[in-house]
């Protein structure tokens, strides 16, 4: 399971500028496609499902980390984050 500390490093690979948890995603250069790539990378379990309707609620890096955290955690549970 990916620990939260690693998330910043992972997110940094896709972000275009430095960020903290309050940085809006678009300001950090993170568009929906980057979010999905991050999801794929973090989840690492092909069976995990993404509820695309939730992406709209992700406004800043903090929201994103919370969501990725849940996605990563779901792997050890039942593989579905819904």
């Amino acid at each position: 399971m990916t620990i939260p500390a690693d998330l910043d490093t992972t997110i940094a690979k896709y972000a275009s500028v430095a960020f903290d948890d309050s940085t809006p995603l678009l300001e950090a250069g993170l568009e929906s496609l980057s979010l999905l790539r991050l999801a794929v990378e973090v989840a690492a379990d092909d069976d995990a499902e993404i509820d695309a309707t939730r992406l709209v609620d992700l406004r800043n890096v903090g929201d994103l980390k919370k969501w990725l955290g849940e996605l990563a955690a779901s792997r050890s549970e039942e593989g579905v984050t819904r």
């Binding site: 496609l33 999801a39 069976d47 499902e49 993404i50 695309a52």
Partner: peptide
């Protein structure tokens, strides 16, 4: 709009 559901589908 992107509607892939499983991580493996990306």
């Amino acid at each position: 709009f992107m509607a892939r559901r499983t991580v493996g589908a990306f």
